[in-house]
Design a protein around this nucleic acid. Structure first.
Lengths: 270, 270
DNA sequence: GCTTGACCTTGCCGCAGCGGCAACGTTTCT
DNA sequence: AGAAACGTTGCCGCTGCGGCAAGGTCAAGC
């Protein structure tokens, strides 16, 4: 047989056959006078065995090892490992499909993936409420409000399924109280004014007080007192986690005010 | 944020982030004076979205398309396609695991993968019977016998689950008859003597007759008369399938004898 | 000031399992 | 004689980054 006949017999490409030669999976057969490889049925048997193994999902080098080691002991190991690997892959795909189904459902309801804004309906409602409030107020929207939306969107997309959902829920309740969103925008205004201020500006303390007053007890209770304290603690800027990014997100005086507000909240939490 | 902070926040490597920049999945942020990339929370949001999509199993270019097209129509398509693809993969893995389980069972029973010989126990038994018969006969084993084993091993490993299994079964029955294997070895001897003969050697016809006499009616009935005729027909050598390889496997006079035998069988089959 | 270590920058190679293509020789059919 | 269908070797391409090179930058400790 020539290579094409062999390949056709087994149902594989000639490239694959040559590849197997190259990797040493299949011994090179005799050559004919013209240089063509000349295969016999024993080569076909060998190739069929190689292919059976590769189709099981073994890597080519694993196949080579299995074929080389006639020990058969290693085979057992390899097969066990392979099965575990396949089981893992199967689970992973199942999980992906589950998540994908959720995304598809949401995309269908929503008419598309959340583009740059909110992910959940609750957050979308919250943003809409913000937009209404802002439109009812004079002047442009404070930049801090838009930053706040970014933070919320990030928190929600960052994964912590349960905690963040609950957070958004509480936030929705809190801003649903009459006048709450207006008060929040007052605070945004105070913070916005600090964009170019020094960190020792007297308005910092004022903004911090106002911000802390906006946080309802229900949200304070949701987080442990230690966590509140940590959030305002000295290491927060440099812990490399979310808080560091959060503080870095604001101008220095704004960050100072936010931090002071969290300190006040932490005191209330005790 | 610098790139490491961003990456840590989302839970990804800096390499991946840069890779996403390179592929245009994530816009390049402003640079600081020292050339470092400077990220804000909005970048984190964008990155989180990219990552959610990639973790669903979308390719990076698909993610880019989805993010670029705010149409959302294409998204639906892509997600459908992805789900179908994942379903296919899941099925494939399931099939592989099933086949793998069979191989593992066999390997455990057998103390290793069939090394170069038979695959099934039935074929192993047949080969053992051949070895016994050969040992009881004077002189070395005819080369044709070994070639025959190759053919059988190939047939069995080539896949056609049902048909080949039945073939081996019938072969087992046929050779279990008293004296059958001895008669087969007589024929092997006749064929072996033809290795250097011309195709018009008178012994060809004799060997063909003897070989045809070895084939029991049960095997003849298993294959349709047309298939027998085709197997001995003029196109068999060049059809590129198994028969071509089979005939090429023998010396010319041997092949001629085998073919003549099949012709005789085909006549009996009618 | 100097080192050390942890960052950052760009850029190119490697990975699995071949497919594609180049650039060429052989066989076979017409 | 020419075309079609084979064969040969060899190198590049694909995915989603990781590794490594060969630096520049920054903060901390001596």
């Amino acid at each position: 047989m020539r290579i094409g006949e062999l390949a056709g017999l087994i149902g594989i490409s000639t490239r694959a056959v040559r590849h197997y030669h190259h990797l040493g999976l299949l011994p090179e057969p005799e050559r004919r006078a013209n240089g063509y490889r000349d295969y016999g049925l024993r080569d076909a048997v060998a190739l069929a065995r190689v292919r059976r193994l590769t189709e099981l999902g073994l890597g080519l080098d694993e196949v080579r090892d299995v074929l080389a080691d006639d020990a058969g002991r290693e085979l057992h190991e390899v097969l066990d490992e392979l099965d575990a690997d396949l089981a893992r892959q199967e689970e992973e795909i199942r999980g992906r499909r589950a998540r994908l189904a959720a995304v598809r459902r949401q995309a269908a309801e929503h008419g598309g993936l959340p583009a740059e804004g909110p992910v959940s309906d609750e957050l979308a409602a919250l943003f809409a409420e913000m937009a209404r409030t802002s439109a009812a107020r004079p002047g442009p929207e404070p930049a801090v409000a838009s930053k706040e939306r970014e933070v919320l969107a990030l928190l929600e997309s960052m994964g912590g399924e349960e905690g963040n959902k609950r957070m958004v829920e509480l936030l929705g309740e809190a801003t649903a109280a009459p006048g709450a969103m207006e008060r929040a925008y007052e605070v945004y205004g105070l913070l916005d004014a600090l964009v170019d201020a020094g960190t020792d500006d007297p308005r910092v303390a004022e903004a911090a007080r106002a911000l802390a007053d906006c946080i309802p007890d229900s949200m304070i209770a949701e987080v442990s007192a230690e966590d509140w304290a940590r959030a305002a603690g000295p290491g927060a800027e440099t812990d490399g986690g979310f808080l560091a990014a959060y503080y870095a997100h604001f101008a220095p005086a704004q960050a100072r005010a936010v931090r002071r507000a969290i300190q006040l909240v932490a005191e209330r939490a005790r």
